[in-house]
Amino acid sequence: ARVLHAAGVAIISAGVLIQLTQSLPMRLRGRMMGYFGLPGFVMLGLGPVVSEWLLYRWDFRILFLSLPVLFLTIGGVLYRLPRAETERSEGCRPRLLEALRASYGLLRSVLFFSVIFGFCFSAWHTFIAPAVQPRVGTGGVSAYGLGYGLGAILTRLGLSHRLDHGAGRYLSISTLALYGISLASIPYASTAHALVGLGLVCGMAHGTYYPSLSSIAAERFHPLHGGQGMSLYISASSLGMFLGPPVWGTITDRAGYGAMFVLAGLTLTAATIVFVAAQYRARHIRPWSEDRVLERE
């Protein structure tokens, strides 16, 4: 069930984002990708509260039974969208490996950083419930999720607009250092209010950094293989989230939740500093031009 759920989410997310990025100018693509993720943050804040209410009212099976209803609703909405007229020229379609190779070069550092973020993100996403329950109780997850969603929404609708282009993007991505510090503090929070505050900081950093990183990535998508570049970019953080839980679980078994969260926070903070410094030194990189495309081809 979890594999099918993840497959459905991946297909919808990648397909919609590819369509949207191809219909917008370069300068707006990062911002659009941020807007696309905004409803997810809304449900990140409301989802735990709704889930706890459903569990209290019925039992855990209602959560799984709701998934087919949600996907059928999404399918109905997508079916009613106007269809774009596209040419299906199979003979001109590039081979997958060639397209991925062309997209990977300039995206390499962005992809690696996305893997690291997903890797560290999975620490709280997987283990926050058992980590905070002894101190705060079962409401700790809802408190953190509420703060996270609220922080992401506030910055995604406001501050991120001022920082998703030019040199401001490096400052925006740097806020993930605060994310790392807050991540390391999660198991030491003793009240629900403290978890709301930590979630607020993490959510604000997430809401600020993602449009900026997406803007940098969009500039480096090969113009002839934009779909493959987008797929690589989306898959990178998912790969980190796939690798993270078994690693963090092993560390937790040996050293406890406190050490695991501290290590995850330090890893993200260190990766952020290294990435921003490297990107700032390489800020001369410009979006693909027609001449560069011809040279590469």
Rank of each mutant, 00 (worst) to 15 (best):
G158K: 04
G158T: 15
S160R: 08
S160N: 10
R162D: 00
L163M: 14
L163C: 10
L163E: 08
L163Q: 10
D164Q: 06
D164P: 02
D164M: 05
H165D: 06
G166C: 10
A167E: 14
G168A: 02
G168N: 02
G168P: 01
G168K: 00
R169I: 03
R169F: 04
R169T: 05
Y170H: 13
L171G: 14
L171N: 01
S172F: 05
S174Q: 07
T175D: 09
T175P: 08
L176Y: 15
L176A: 09
L176I: 10
A177E: 11
A177M: 15
A177N: 07
A177C: 14
A177R: 03
A177V: 15
L178R: 05
L178V: 09
L178P: 12
L178C: 14
Y179M: 11
G180N: 04
G180E: 06
L183C: 09
A184G: 10
A184L: 02
S185N: 07
S185W: 13
S185P: 04
I186G: 10
I186Q: 11
P187F: 01
P187V: 00
P187E: 01
Y188V: 00
Y188P: 00
Y188L: 06
A189R: 01
S190P: 00
S190M: 07
S190N: 11
T191M: 10
T191Y: 05
T191P: 07
A192S: 14
A192C: 02
H193I: 13
A194I: 04
